[in-house]
Design a protein around this nucleic acid. Structure first.
Lengths: 203, 203
DNA sequence: GTCTATACTGTGATAGAC
DNA sequence: GTCTATCACAGTATAGAC
């Protein structure tokens, strides 16, 4: 993967001699996204990434105060990309029916799923810069799933004797764990396992 | 945590000027185990660990070719320690009844649970030195759980309409994911969530 | 405001003295 | 078997070009 440094996309607006800062940052995120998704990120130093982008590693540091910030930005970008499809699927068909598709959506980017898994494991440390963010993210996901379960229950598609807080956490935990096992063995059918669990919950 | 460097335990046999190699390595593993379990390991460099042990970082590198090897050795040591209690619990009461205790066993060492989670995430990379080992470990755990489920089924304590391969993976995946959420929020009751899932499986 | 050049500190690894 | 010395490379910080 080599990069043309002499040419810039015509779409990049200029302000004086250099590209617009926010657009430039955005471009870096997008390209880093592709690099991470393909090559993973563990063995990539800031210097290597910068080399791929055709700039010095200091230029990267200018846009992203720390390596952690770059990883976080890439990760946020993925969340932004996923959200529209996610919300559409939920609105149209509800959590239970949309689940296989949501899983498949992740399967196209194993590098990012691994990035996610590793970041979540590393951010367990209380003094990690992404700790609070990740913790809140887990809670929000649980709350989202709980709400979806509630909706399904109201529609009479779910058993009424469930502790939804408990069930939601069981579901998100299982999804995480399955994703992990899938990373080690692509033949693991994440959707099928989740669907099997949902079968226990159906009315 | 400071270390006396002038004195050595009387139990350490000498061979010439220095301690016996294998015993020394063993001692290092045990003490590193304690350090990791208490302090975590992420921010610990080989130099810091060596300082705690009262030797130079090069001495550690002699016993463990790479940092990865040290972590692996510590992790193996944990597995060795856990196995007897695990097997005894399984033999006496079976998986379903022993589960809460097994979970509690891990809860005493959050540092090691995090070590485990992080190592497993990092070892996803195919070129990671611990990749094959970790992959095999996941498979073995799934197989163990599957066998236990089979035994429970034979005793009539489990539904007979289960796909045990699927169920075993659901169970191990959920356990992993719950452990992760517990690391972020110690109020998460891992055993209760697992037990709730097992309730679906009971005959 | 954005970049390059450069230096600082700390890392894991290794060679060779003892 | 353990040490000191040294290495290449990491992330970070800053000075100054433009």
């Amino acid at each position: 993967m080599t990069v043309e440094t002499t040419e810039q996309p015509a779409s990049v607006k200029r302000r004086g001699r250099y590209a617009n800062g926010l657009q430039r940052r955005d471009e870096f995120i997008d390209r880093a996204f592709e690099i991470f998704a393909t090559h993973g990120f563990q063995r990539l130093s800031l210097r290597k990434i910068a080399e791929e982008l055709g700039v010095s590693h200091a230029a990267l540091s200018y846009h992203f105060p720390s390596k952690e910030d770059l990883l976080q930005a890439v990760f946020d970008r993925q969340a932004e990309r996923d959200r529209p499809l996610l919300e559409q699927s939920l609105a149209e068909r509800g959590l239970l029916a949309a689940l296989p598709e949501l899983v498949r959506q992740n399967e196209d980017f194993p590098g990012l799923v691994q990035l996610d898994a590793t970041m979540q494991a590393e951010a367990i440390r209380k003094d990690h810069p992404g700790h609070e963010f990740t913790h809140r993210r887990i809670d929000l996901f649980n709350a989202d799933v709980r709400r979806e379960l509630e909706r399904e229950q109201e529609k009479g598609r779910l058993r009424t004797d469930l502790d939804l807080d408990l069930t939601a956490r069981q579901l998100t935990a299982m999804a995480r764990g399955l994703q992990m096992q899938w990373l080690y063995d692509p033949t693991v059918d994440v959707a099928a396992h989740l669907d099997g669990f949902l079968a226990f919950l159906r009315a």
